[in-house]
């Protein structure tokens, strides 16, 4: 498992080779002064690393509640999205997701899997804005331009078919379809 490194020793070995025999010295390492020096540094490093791993720096005590507030806000925003106008009409996020999935499916070699739509923090009744996480499966061999095409169609569908602005589209390829 030799890895070439820029840290070659005058004896011809490198630091990684010394590391590999740390706990079971071979005859060369036992007698080589260069290897012995490096070995001692590595022993200090190993001890310091153990100290570092033992350190239990705790996150701030309110981190859990901050995370859960963000999750709860996200859940609220993922139920229904306002439609443009007086802000009274709303459309379910699931319905918007279905429209966007359909738009992505229109691209050759692409199948929309999960689509999650939430109202963006900056959204207002007069100017509804959404954020979307879309996972897709692609056929083996499709090119990178496909992602741009998916992006373009989903953006267009959000504004033309639903009437909302899409501020963020997070596109994830979750699967590759063989054959």
């Amino acid at each position: 498992m030799a890895v070439t490194s820029d840290y070659d020793l005058p004896c011809g070995r490198d630091v990684e080779q010394v590391w590999e025999v740390m706990d079971h010295l071979d005859p060369h390492t036992r007698s080589c002064p260069h290897c012995a020096t490096v070995r001692e540094s590595l022993l200090v490093l190993r001890a310091a690393t153990e100290e570092l791993a033992r350190e239990e720096v705790e996150p701030p005590s309110d981190l859990v509640s901050r995370i859960m507030s963000a999750v709860r806000a996200d859940v609220r925003r993922s139920v229904a999205i306002p439609l443009p106008g007086d802000g009274l009409a709303r459309i379910s996020a699931r319905a918007v997701a279905a429209v966007l999935r359909y738009a992505a499916d229109g691209v050759d070699g692409v199948r929309a899997r999960g689509c999650r739509v939430v109202e963006a923090a900056e959204s207002t009744g007069a100017d509804p804005v959404i954020e979307v996480d879309l996972s897709i499966a692609i056929s083996a061999g499709v090119t990178a331009e496909v992602y741009e095409e998916v992006r373009r169609r989903v953006l267009a569908a959000a504004s033309a078919r639903v009437g909302v602005r899409l501020a963020r589209l997070d596109l994830v390829v979750s699967d590759v379809l063989e054959g």
Binding site: S5, D6, Y7, E16, L45
Partner: peptide
């Protein structure tokens, strides 16, 4: 390997 050598 490089990281370890540099740290050592």
């Amino acid at each position: 390997a490089r990281a370890r050598a540099q740290l050592a």
